[in-house]
């Protein structure tokens, strides 16, 4: 009896102190390291870091938007759009750097339209961005006639292979973008407005604060993060692919939730999102390395991510019950 309650309190303690995202990740690493002896190598962990980069940037963007109690379902389509536009413009004869800048600006423009529709039109963000997702997918398909487009340029290889102090350049870029996002979120007026939008929009409106401008800025900033992800993806694939980002918006939402940002209250932050993204990347990398046929991978990835979200939600509720009981 005593042992039983002690075991119970050990489990509740465990759940309270260690967020599920961490132990699920550890569990995955343990399983994969048993399944393949190639897994626990240092080079594989560098691989995981590099593989996580594109999703990481999209997930930062998604976190900002989820903090405003929105969701941007057009982010994946924005990634595809940027890869296509960059290659398309370069093929059309523009210098590659100019084309890159235009692609970034285009993505930010798309974001600001999202922000405008959501705030000025007062429609649910996920419907507005679902519409945008389809519009962007169409544009990407029309620009490429539905297939991948290629150019050869040494820049692509240089970006993916470059290392600074032994760490790949793309990881540095991600770290830098993380810092920028962190500063925006915690040290600027825009960041305060993001938390404000997630907290109580009505109160902000009644206080006479115009929600249109901050919304436009937030979605445009998300567009900036997404476009960097798009540029890095292009470098890695050395091509523009109209469907490469499909589904990333949801993986980003999943990572955000697993990282402890709430879809309902505007609570959370960008740090946790990193762990959410790492969980997803470790899962994908591990399935590949341990030789699970690709036929089964989609269902397994979906199921495990969904299960992780469920476990996380349940653990969170348990915790809030306990806190309620203490009061």
């Amino acid at each position: 009896m005593q042992a039983n309650t002690r075991a119970k309190s050990f489990i509740t303690d465990f759940v309270r102190k260690i967020p599920p995202v961490l132990w699920i990740t550890l569990l995955l690493i343990t399983i994969f390291s048993m399944a393949s002896d190639q897994y626990l190598k240092f080079s594989n962990f560098t691989n995981i870091l590099v593989q996580s980069v594109p999703l990481m940037l999209v997930a930062f963007a998604q976190t900002l938007i989820v903090l405003t109690q929105g969701t941007d379902l057009s982010l994946g389509a924005q990634v595809s759009f940027v890869t296509v536009l960059w290659i398309y413009l370069t093929k059309a004869g523009l210098p590659i750097y100019i084309a890159a800048i235009i692609s970034v600006v285009a993505s930010m423009f798309v974001g600001s339209i999202n922000g405008l529709i959501v705030s000025k039109g007062k429609i649910p963000p996920f419907i507005a961005t679902l519409g945008m997702q389809n519009i962007l997918n169409s544009i990407s398909m029309l620009l490429t006639a539905g297939a991948s487009i290629y150019i050869y340029h040494p820049l692509f290889y240089d970006v993916t292979k470059a290392k600074i102090i032994g760490i790949p350049l793309v990881v540095w870029i991600t770290a830098f973008m993380f810092m920028v996002t962190w500063v925006v979120l915690y040290k600027t007026k825009l960041g305060a407005q993001i938390f404000g939008l997630g907290g109580n929009q009505e109160a902000l409106t009644l206080a006479g604060i115009n929600l249109v401008k901050p919304s436009i800025k937030i979605y445009a900033f998300a567009g900036l993060l997404t476009s960097v992800s798009g540029l890095i993806t292009t470098c890695r694939l050395e091509s523009g692919q109209p469907v490469v980002g499909a589904g990333w918006e949801f993986e980003a939402v999943a990572a955000t939730l697993l990282g402890g940002t709430s879809l309902r209250e505007g609570k959370g932050g960008i740090g946790g999102t990193i762990f959410g993204v790492l969980l997803i990347t470790i899962l994908k990398n591990g399935l590949n390395i341990s030789g699970v046929p690709s036929l089964y991978q989609n269902a397994i990835i979906g199921l495990i991510i969904l299960m992780s979200i469920v476990i996380d939600a349940l653990a969170r509720r348990m915790k809030s019950y306990e806190e309620g009981a203490k009061l």
């Binding site: 679902l130 389809n134 519009i135 997918n137």
Partner: peptide, 10 residues
Amino acid sequence: QPMVVGFVIV
């Protein structure tokens, strides 16, 4: 076609 459908929704 998705573009038109998306536009109509919005």
